[in-house]
C-alpha cells in the first residue's frame, strides 16, 4: 500500500485540526484548543487504489516555526488553510508557501489552498475570488470548506493524493525504497 505524507499548515485558529479530525474521525471538534502537533493515519481508497494517508496536523502558533522545516522536508503534499473570516490568516499563507518551495528546492509541490469556515458566510472577509486568484497565482488547487458542515473536507485530501500521484507515479519497488528512507 502506498503511503502519503500530508501536512496541514496555516495560522492559529483557522480550523486545521477541525478539518483533519473531521476527515479522519468524522467528528466536528467544537472547541478551539491549540494543537502542538498531531499525526493521524487513515486508510482510504483513492483513484481505485488503497492508500495510507499519514496526516500531520501542525501548530499554527508562530513559535513553532523551528519544527516547520522538518514537516516541510518530510511532507509530500501540503494543505494550506486560512479562515474566510480572517484576512491575516489569508495573508500569512504566502510566506508559508514560499518556505515550502524553498525547502523542497522546486517550484512544483503538491499543494492545495483551503478557505475554511465557509459556513460562516455572514462573517466572511476573504472573498472567494481572492482565494481563486491566489490559487491561480500559485498554480495550485483551491477549495472552500467547512469542517462544521462537512463541505469539501474529503476532497482536500483526495485532491492532494491525485496531485502526488501525478507528480510522482508509484515506482514499482516502492516498498524497499520507502523503508530505506525511513532508516535514514
Amino acid at each position: 500500500m502506498r503511503e502519503y505524507k500530508l501536512v496541514v499548515l496555516g495560522s492559529g485558529g483557522v480550523g486545521k485540526s477541525a478539518l483533519t479530525v473531521q476527515f479522519v474521525q468524522g467528528i466536528f471538534v467544537e472547541k478551539y484548543d491549540p494543537t502542538i502537533e498531531d499525526s493521524y493515519r487513515k486508510q482510504v481508497e483513492a483513484e481505485n487504489q488503497q492508500c495510507m494517508l499519514e496526516i500531520l496536523d501542525t501548530a499554527g502558533t508562530e513559535q513553532f516555526t523551528a519544527m516547520r522545516d522538518l514537516y516541510m522536508k518530510n511532507g509530500q503534499g501540503f494543505v494550506l488553510v486560512y479562515s474566510i473570516t480572517s484576512q491575516a490568516s489569508f495573508n500569512d499563507l504566502s510566506d508559508l508557501r514560499e518556505q515550502i518551495l524553498r525547502v523542497k528546492d522546486t517550484d512544483e509541490v503538491p499543494m492545495i489552498l483551503v478557505g475554511n469556515k465557509c459556513d460562516l458566510e455572514d462573517e466572511r472577509i476573504v472573498t472567494r475570488e481572492q482565494g481563486e486568484q491566489l490559487a491561480k497565482e500559485w498554480r495550485s488547487s483551491f477549495l472552500e470548506t467547512s469542517a462544521k458542515s462537512k463541505i469539501n473536507v474529503e476532497n482536500i485530501f483526495f485532491d492532494l493524493v491525485k496531485q502526488i500521484n501525478k507528480k510522482t507515479p508509484e515506482p514499482k519497488r516502492k516498498k524497499k525504497k520507502s523503508s530505506g528512507c525511513a532508516l535514514l
Partner: peptide
Amino acid sequence: NQSPSTLFRNSS
C-alpha cells in the same frame, strides 16, 4: 475580536 475562541491564536 469577534470570536472569543480564536482570540490571540493568530500571529499579530
